[in-house]
């Protein structure tokens, strides 16, 4: 198993290089360092000298990939790509274009992101699984039909409506919780209730429907019939056999996205002014802070690949028949 993970990790390196090259290309073709400088320096009274100075200070005055002016190995190392992109492999994110330590910022902003993502995930799982079981238990009856219709209706509503509506209803009209904001420590709870509720509700529709189909698939299998035929209590059938087996696809589905929880939610975080990594990314795009964007892309890719590996591992854990090779 360990050897397998190592091999998979090694396989990730060319992917990360590819990701790196692609983002580098995309962002530098689009945004010359001059553009970045102009955006950072503001509007009023910006001189060409100031732009040159800004670039020189941040090392953006070098050639992109190949330095003809330098000699020997410096031709490749005295370039923006080498200095800015390759260091990421050592998880050295460097400094953002306005001079902040990106690693430090990521460390700080991860917490609020997780503070939304983890409760949303857990509460969501609990609710979705219960609903799905309920629907599966009452399969074919009006409960099931109306439940499925409700799920489809819920998943047909854009997340934007949930957020705007939630803020308006719970925050403004009913005044039950703060409309937006964030605070450290336990004070954070009252700020997190609303985004978590919205996060859960916007996910209920699709997940319940998906989980229901997992349950139905298991329920149709022979061992469930056998268990029933043996005269086992319905509760035992439901929880011991049905739930346990349906959990396999549910858990593997969750494991894939587990690492990506770190990346935060773009929409929730910007609407609720929560200083997580999602809003960090959006801000960086808007400010065209290439250093942060690069770091976030890299981080996202790493986490995605970790997710893939975790799924494989999870399969072996929950289903002993699968062997990693």
């Amino acid at each position: 198993m360990f050897a397998y993970i190592v091999r998979r990790a090694a396989y990730a390196i060319p992917i990360l290089i590819g990701v790196n090259l692609l983002t580098f290309y995309l962002f530098f073709v689009v945004n010359s360092p001059d553009d970045m400088a102009r955006l950072h320096l503001g509007v009023k009274r910006v001189t060409p000298e100031a732009i040159e100075k800004w670039k020189a200070e941040r090392g953006y005055n070098k050639p992109l990939m190949y330095n003809e002016a330098a000699a020997g190995i410096d031709r490749l190392t005295e370039t923006i790509f080498f200095e800015k992109s390759l260091k990421l492999f050592a998880f050295d994110f460097g400094h953002s274009d306005d001079g902040r330590d990106i690693s430090h910022d990521i460390g700080q902003r991860m917490i609020p992101s997780l503070a939304i993502a983890i409760p949303s995930l857990l509460v969501g799982l609990l609710i979705n699984i219960s609903f799905a079981m309920l629907l599966a238990f009452f399969r074919g009856t009006y409960v099931d039909v109306s439940g499925v219709i409700l799920s489809v209706v819920l998943m047909s509503v854009s997340a934007m409506f949930y957020i705007i509506g939630g803020q308006f209803l719970l925050g403004k009209l009913l005044r039950l919780m703060p409309i937006s904001g964030y605070d450290g420590g336990l004070d954070a709870i009252k700020f997190l209730v609303l985004p978590v509720i919205i996060g859960v509700i916007s996910g209920i529709g699709s997940s319940t429907r998906l989980y229901r189909s997992f349950f139905l698939e298991e329920a149709g299998k022979d061992f469930i019939r056998t268990a029933r035929a043996k005269g086992l209590k319905e509760s035992r059938v439901l929880f011991r056999h049905l739930l346990a087996n349906a959990m396999i696809p549910i858990i593997t589905g969750v494991v894939v996205i587990l690492p990506l929880l770190f990346m935060g939610s773009l929409l929730l975080e910007s609407f609720f002014a929560i200083p997580g990594l999602g809003s960090y990314t959006i801000d960086a795009i808007n400010r065209q802070d290439f250093a942060i964007v690069r770091a976030m892309v890299f981080l996202g890719s790493v986490l995605y690949i970790i997710g893939l590996i975790l799924v494989d591992v999870a399969y072996t854990v929950v289903d002993p028949r699968v062997r990693l090779s």
Partner: peptide, 17 residues
């Protein structure tokens, strides 16, 4: 390799670029 690389880049960033 191609599709793993592409899908590991956060989509919003790709679209923005």
């Amino acid at each position: 390799y191609t599709y793993t690389t592409l899908s590991s880049i956060p989509g919003v960033l790709l679209i923005a670029a």
